[in-house]
């Protein structure tokens, strides 16, 4: 079984995330980069499945910049067998359509039985890339799963949104996405980090994907304007005493909130 995990390199939400006000693109150098914390759980699922099922290959695939190599390497240190990174100048600032096209092309190039993604990324918060890939590759999508049941030829799982839980099932090949409620990913240990150095790490450009993706001929979503909001300032901070409730009510009244 060949499982490809779509690993996205994102700014650490625990650090400061900034957008460049000229280009509207994320400032990659200004923040620590990490594997998106939701897909990291999908990676954990794939790696533990491989540990229990001999003959499973786990491949980490990412579309990012050359600087993201270190982040993608973390997937190898956690236990993925090899990594494929698509890097191309022409992909700078890629929108959803282009990202999905490139990942779909790379997936066809690599081959797969199962594709694992996160249900949404912490920087994009789009949550549509897995569905877009399903459409482009014409494979079943089982997105936002709370758990996954995987057999050699089938994948199933529950998908809960608001009050509705759907039980989804499909033959392989298919694409699944996991939610934040999946099991916590493991930490890469020293042995894993050393082993990662010897694992195959392929960097591909667009032309090497054997795909005809014309970056300019498809419609693209572009940012036309961007404004930074001044960060929120802390207001008053009081230590609770006998009058706190009274003062708080006065504050709410003054601001017409009661």
């Amino acid at each position: 079984m060949k499982i490809v995990v779509l690993v996205k390199d994102v700014p650490d939400t625990y650090g400061e995330r900034t957008l460049n006000l000229e280009t509207g693109l994320a400032e990659r150098d200004k923040s620590d980069r990490v594997i998106d914390e939701i897909v990291e759980r999908g990676l954990e699922f794939a790696i533990s499945f491989a540990e229990q099922n001999e003959g499973t290959e786990v491949i980490a695939l990412s579309m990012a910049t050359e600087q993201s190599s270190a982040t993608i390497r973390k997937a190898l240190a956690m236990g993925a067998d090899r990594a494929v990174l698509v890097v191309d100048e022409a992909l700078h600032g890629a929108d959803i359509t282009l990202t999905a096209q490139v990942l779909a092309a790379a997936l066809s190039h690599i081959g797969f039985d199962l594709i694992v993604a996160g249900d949404q990324s912490t920087d994009g918060v789009g949550g549509v890339i897995p569905a877009a890939i399903a459409e482009l590759l014409d494979i079943p999508q089982l997105t936002r799963l709370a758990s996954i049941e995987l057999s050699p030829d089938r994948v199933s799982g529950p998908r809960t949104s608001e009050r509705v839980t759907l039980t989804l099932t499909a033959p392989l090949p298919a694409i699944v996405s996991v939610t934040e409620r999946f099991a916590e990913p493991r930490f890469a240990n020293f042995k894993g980090i050393m082993a990662a150095k010897k694992k195959p790490f392929e960097v591909l450009s667009l032309s090497e994907l054997n795909a005809t993706i014309d970056v300019m001929s498809a419609p693209r979503s572009i940012m036309t304007n961007i404004v930074a909001k001044p960060p929120r300032q802390a207001g008053v901070k009081v230590v609770a005493d006998g009058d706190t409730a009274q003062h708080l009510v006065e504050f709410l009244k003054k601001n017409q909130l009661v």
Partner: peptide, 23 residues
């Protein structure tokens, strides 16, 4: 931008070759 709507819209955009703006 709901669990019900967003994926269908994104797929529609891929199928028809349209541009998508999310959220």
């Amino acid at each position: 931008q709901s669990d019900q709507g967003k994926e269908a819209l994104a797929r529609f955009a891929m199928r028809t070759g349209a541009g998508v703006a999310i959220d």
